[in-house]
Design a protein around this nucleic acid. Structure first.
Lengths: 227, 227
DNA sequence: CGGATACCGGTACGTCCGTACCACTTTAAC
DNA sequence: GTTAAAGTGGTACGGACGTACCGGTATCCG
């Protein structure tokens, strides 16, 4: 949050005030009553998610969102009280979508019980399913993690960040259970942190051997941690 | 990098050009020849590091750096060709300092050979030594990780990000060696990723039990992974 | 079918940004 | 000491930002 308009905008009274007194401003609308309004709001949110992925946190500006959604600038201030609210909702949407994708990829991976098989499934769930050469996808996923870190400075985002971590852990625990591993108290957590760390490192550093290294390390951890 | 001035600024020729032709502009100076210039440059860099820690990546602006350093705005453009260069150098400095601090804390921790002892030493090395209630310190360390993620979008920062990862792994490997653990091929890497992941999660989510959980998980991993 | 209300969108303000400019002062070389 | 180079700093420009304003239009309820 770059604070233009630091605090308590002075309301410079640009116009001579042609009237309009004694009415509370209608203000932005979080839940539009009409169908079209709801669709417009969703379109804006979708555009914000896309910008978040492509350009990161700072790319989500009112103007960019409006342009991407094919809507006028004022629509963004009509449906969202502030940029922060827009970003927070986009973050929540992104987290939900990513968790859903992970869960889906893990369920269709049908892992066997060997550490190698489960490690493969986890690496696949981590990736998007796109080929290893897809650099655009690597960049797109950075947005999620950038916002995750931003959550460290913004309590409104922090609650979503915790949902992200908890969701990832749950997905990993479920995968371990389905693969027939005993429900160890710490095992799922260790594997989850390991998976997230390796994933993020891959997204940031882009080393070509990252995927295979992740597979090796996960398999090793599964082999030893789970007796 | 919010791209104001997207590319190839049109040079609007604001003044009627009073002369000044046929001379390559003196331009910014990366390595000042005079002592005072060197100190001023270092002061600016120091200010940039501080801003990076306190406000994150977007807080490092020419004006903020200059003000914090007690220098005029033009000093920042004199010693650094662009904001990106300023940020990159500050990132490198931050990484070097953090690695140095980690190494120092680990060396004086004199870990015993038990997994619990080493886990304690690692958690201490991760933290700054400040008490658990020091929230300002938590925020300050976020800057490093935010920049680390930004490196995923900027090749100039990416090389520094790799140095950060490699440095952390080396520190962990050294700690394992000093504690008498056998130099396993993957062990240090697993512990390093685990440590970094838990650390980052703690910084972002701020859960009160994060430190003790990190200790538990690290000890468990050390106990099982290393036979 | 008429009025209230939700929605729309063009436009504007003030702020902050990166960076350039250029007259001025200090330093160092001869 | 003179002079070229290095350093200094006040100021300016163009652009992008968040957000407010407000006349106009569509939709819904009665």
């Amino acid at each position: 949050m770059i604070d233009h308009h630091p605090d308590a905008a002075p309301r410079p009274a640009t116009r001579p005030s042609t009237g309009q007194e004694a009415g509370a401003a209608p203000g932005p609308v979080a839940r539009p009553s009409q169908e079209r309004g709801r669709r417009r709001r969703a379109t804006l949110l979708e555009a914000a998610v896309g910008l978040l992925q492509e350009g990161g946190f700072t790319a989500v500006t009112h103007r960019a969102v409006a342009q991407r959604a094919g809507l006028p600038l004022a629509a963004t201030t009509y449906y969202f009280t502030s940029r922060d609210e827009l970003v927070a909702e986009a973050f929540a949407l992104l987290v939900a979508g990513e968790l859903h994708g992970m869960r889906g990829r893990l369920e269709e991976a049908t892992p066997d019980e060997t550490p190698e098989g489960l490690a493969t499934a986890l690496v696949v769930a981590m990736g998007s399913g796109a080929g290893p050469g897809d650099d655009g996808d690597r960049l797109r996923r950075l947005g999620l993690w950038q916002l995750y870190l931003q959550a460290g400075r913004d309590p409104a985002l922090q609650v979503i960040a915790r949902q992200w971590t908890d969701g990832c852990d749950a997905v990993v625990a479920e995968a371990l259970r389905r693969a027939g591993y005993p429900p160890g108290r710490h095992a799922a957590r260790i594997i989850g942190v390991l998976l997230a760390g390796l994933w993020m490192e891959h997204l940031v550093e882009g080393r070509p051997e990252a995927q295979s290294e992740a597979h090796t390390l996960l398999a090793q951890a599964l082999r030893t941690i789970l007796r």
